[in-house]
């Protein structure tokens, strides 16, 4: 599959944006009183969001999870509104109601970040059902971690999607850890994708740090879904550079293991490929990096200068 230059540029842009966005959060969340609540990051896993979302159209939907930042940015969410929401400000995409753990951006068809592990798949099934019911040429992607595949809701949802041939792609971002548990401690199957066999759908294992491979596999699953052939379970093998959250001391992750995966960072891989095949020049790359940096700095400025909601606004938005 020949990948258009514009697509490669889009993927590189969102890889860099997600990385820079979260590097800022790593620092900002250490400052007392700056960002309320937990901070859960996808650093090192950005190729999945960038590659999958590059394969989608605006009418396609995504349902995401704890490590949502790269998914949402790549789906087209406004970085200012995201950052302001992470700061819990009134100008945030959810007026300060959700914070970093429940970012909802329905205007780009990313209506739900759920941080109930396994909460996403049944909702993705419903979103995909609506697409099928209305005979739309669109799909729903459900991002889950490896841990979520041990929740009953995951299995109920994959089974129903399979039985009804729903246009949904279950994307498992296997970062090797569910909380503090390594893969082999929580799942006997070597590959999460092996579980697809039980639902008679394709299960595919892909290098989750190879952005172009992620893109290709998502394009194939999308085409299959649109052809009425039903769901695909794609397992992207990747790695969680950070702890479960930023407060996690990561005592259970060997330092050599982290270093080995950092050496396989998705950014130099795509950047290197694009420089090598002439997709981008060194100068253009520098300009892009500067542009991303400015974008993130502007998002932080916007969030910091925005007001908090007024206390009484807590009472709004419960019912329609």
């Amino acid at each position: 599959m020949e990948i258009p230059l514009a697509k490669k540029m889009e993927m590189l842009r969102f890889l860099l944006l997600a990385r820079r966005f979260e590097e800022s959060l790593t620092e900002l969340c250490k400052i007392e009183g700056k960002i309320p609540g937990m901070m859960i990051l996808c650093t090192g896993q950005e190729a999945v969001g960038a590659g999958v979302c590059a394969a989608l159209q605006p009418t396609d939907a995504i349902i995401t999870n704890h490590r949502s930042h790269s998914h949402l940015l790549a789906k087209g969410a406004d970085p200012n509104a995201l950052m302001a929401e992470i700061f819990c400000k009134r100008t945030g995409c959810n007026k300060g109601k959700s914070g970093t753990l429940h970012l909802a951006v329905p205007e780009v068809n990313a209506p739900c970040t759920t941080t109930v592990v396994g909460g996403g798949p049944p909702i993705a099934v419903g979103r995909a059902f609506a697409q099928q019911y209305r005979k739309e040429q669109s799909v729903t992607v459900c991002f889950v971690g490896d841990g979520a595949t041990n929740e009953g809701s995951f299995h109920e949802a994959v089974n129903l999607a399979s039985v009804w041939h729903l246009p949904v792609i279950f994307v498992c971002e296997n970062n090797m850890y569910a909380g503090a548990q390594r893969h082999e401690e929580h799942t006997k199957a070597e590959n999460i994708a092996d579980r697809a066999a039980g639902y008679a759908i394709p299960g595919v294992v892909v290098d989750g740090n190879d952005t172009l491979a992620v893109y290709r596999s998502a394009m194939e699953a999308r085409a299959r879904a649109l052809a009425g052939e039903g769901p695909t379970l794609i397992e992207y093998k990747t790695y969680r550079w950070r702890g479960h959250g930023e407060a996690d001391p990561q005592i259970y992750q060997p330092k050599e293991e982290i270093a080995a995966w950092q050496a396989r960072c998705p950014i130099p891989k795509l950047r290197g490929d694009m420089l090598a095949d002439g997709s981008i020049s060194t100068e253009a790359l520098k300009a892009l990096e500067a542009q991303i940096d400015a974008l993130v700095q502007e998002a932080i400025r916007f969030a910091e200068e925005s007001p908090y909601p007024e206390p009484h606004e807590a009472l709004e938005d419960v019912f329609a």
Partner: peptide
């Protein structure tokens, strides 16, 4: 059968079906 959908015995999926479909504007 397009509008009267028999489901597997899967209460979480049934309720999730309603959540996702209603967000998209259907009336489950």
């Amino acid at each position: 059968p397009e509008r009267i959908r028999d489901t597997p015995v899967s209460e979480a999926a049934i309720a999730g079906l309603a959540v996702g479909a209603s967000e998209a504007g259907l009336k489950p």
